[in-house]
């Protein structure tokens, strides 16, 4: 399972590296989001700093959605999906591989957005380890949901339908992630933070759902 996951993940990442969509489109896009936030929310001094955890997660979610749409449009061409199964890869492995590839791309994007927030909004981010830890867990949870729905939605309407399906389901993850960040920014740091715990629950639960159902989604 893990070997298959590694194969799929490295395949996806290799495609992304060669196409340079991440660096040439996704990162500039997040920069645009940050700039738009800056002049739409700059009505009150310090408002951007107060809102920065929420803005970070909204920007990340948008970027992740695009990454997910790309990840599955790759498989849509030439029935590559069926190809993966015919190679004898395990469906759980394909799922994990897809998730790993999305998580790695998202991590790069989130790092970029994090720097953007610190530099452009002058948001003081302390406790970087905890921020990164919660961001990582939240990203896993969101990616798992995204990959399950991404495989479920096929055809022309994928790009418009995927966000509609994913956003309500990941809303609690996004809420927990924002609250965890707010706690850390305010200096309330502990591993026992309930929001971090909730993020772990979501990551495990959504991951388990994906591992268990991905086979029937792909093979139908």
């Amino acid at each position: 399972m893990f070997k298959d996951a590694w194969l799929v993940a490295s395949k996806d990442l290799r495609i992304e590296r060669r196409s340079r969509v991440l660096t040439n489109q996704l990162l500039p896009f997040t920069l645009v989001i940050l700039i738009i936030f800056a002049f739409t929310f700059d009505t009150h001094p310090n408002l951007l700093v107060t809102l920065s955890p929420g803005l970070f997660w909204v920007a990340s979610l948008f970027a992740m959605t695009i990454a997910l749409q790309r990840s599955f449009s790759l498989e849509a061409e030439n029935q590559a999906r069926d190809g993966l199964l015919l190679y004898g890869l395990e469906s759980a492995g394909i799922f994990l591989g897809k998730v790993v590839a999305i998580v790695i791309q998202s991590a790069i994007v989130e790092l970029f957005i994090g720097f953007g927030i610190v530099i452009l909004y002058a948001a003081p981010l302390h406790e970087v380890v905890f921020l990164a830890l919660s961001a990582f867990t939240a990203t896993i949870g969101i990616s798992c949901v995204g990959v399950v729905f991404g495989a479920m939605v096929t055809g022309r309407s994928r790009d418009s339908l995927l966000p509609l399906l994913i956003f309500p389901v990941v809303a609690p993850v996004l809420l927990s992630a924002t609250k965890a960040w707010e706690d850390y920014v305010r200096g309330k740091v502990s591993l026992g933070d309930p929001w971090l715990g909730l993020l772990v629950v979501f990551a495990i639960a959504f991951g388990a759902v994906g591992v268990l159902t991905f086979g029937s989604i792909l093979e139908e």
Partner: peptide, 14 residues
Amino acid sequence: IVVVALVAVLYKGL
């Protein structure tokens, strides 16, 4: 089991 346990622990905090 892990999920149920974590939810139980979190319930009060959240």
